[in-house]
Amino acid sequence: MSFQVKVLPAKLHFTVENNETILQAALRQGIDFPYRCQQGVCTSCVCKLRAGSVHYVPPSPLTELDQQQAFVYCCLAYADSDLELHHPFIRG
């Protein structure tokens, strides 16, 4: 099963499969998505979740504050639905 991802304000659209992270899907489709460590440490790929839901293979990298602010670590997050994300530095 696949889901659609929209990244604002860049108005980017791409598809994520259920066996890949959001970052893996973006890179596979040639999207210039910011990342470094791919382990949830550097926070380069962190987006704000505007709509939809994601899950992580335990343990989750999210702190309580991250959860309250609806942050998504795209290098570790798997989509559970269509998503709308916000990342101020991604260009379309």
Rank of each mutant, 00 (worst) to 15 (best):
S2Y: 11
S2G: 05
S2I: 14
F3S: 07
F3M: 03
Q4Y: 06
V5W: 03
V5G: 01
K6R: 08
V7I: 15
L8N: 13
L8G: 07
P9W: 14
P9S: 03
A10N: 03
A10K: 07
A10F: 05
A10Q: 04
A10H: 09
K11C: 07
K11W: 06
L12N: 00
L12P: 03
L12V: 13
L12F: 00
H13M: 09
H13Y: 15
F14W: 10
F14G: 03
F14T: 11
F14N: 02
T15I: 15
T15E: 07
V16C: 09
N19F: 13
N19W: 12
E20H: 13
E20L: 07
T21G: 11
I22N: 06
I22T: 08
I22V: 14
L23H: 04
A25H: 08
L27S: 08
L27E: 09
R28S: 08
Q29L: 09
G30L: 10
G30W: 07
I31H: 05
D32K: 15
F33H: 06
F33N: 04
P34S: 10
P34Y: 08
Y35A: 12
Y35C: 10
Y35T: 05
R36L: 11
R36C: 06
R36I: 05
C37G: 11
C37L: 12
Q38T: 01
Q38E: 09
Q39S: 15
G40Y: 03
G40Q: 02
G40I: 04
V41L: 08
C42N: 02
C42I: 04
T43A: 07
T43M: 12
T43C: 08
S44D: 08
C47G: 04
K48R: 15
K48L: 04
L49D: 04
R50A: 04
R50W: 03
R50P: 00
R50N: 09
A51I: 01
A51M: 11
A51C: 09
V54L: 15
Y56W: 14
P58M: 14
P59G: 13
P59V: 14
L62N: 06
L62A: 05
T63Y: 12
T63V: 08
L65I: 15
D66R: 10
D66M: 13
D66A: 09
D66F: 05
Q67C: 07
Q68G: 11
Q68T: 13
Q69T: 13
F71P: 04
F71R: 15
F71C: 07
V72S: 01
C74N: 02
C74G: 00
C75D: 09
C75M: 04
L76G: 01
A77E: 02
A77W: 02
A77D: 04
Y78L: 14
A79T: 02
D80W: 00
S81D: 10
E84H: 00
E84W: 06
L85K: 01
H86G: 00
H86V: 15
H87F: 12
H87M: 05
P88F: 10
P88K: 06
P88M: 08
P88A: 06
F89M: 08
R91E: 11
G92L: 07
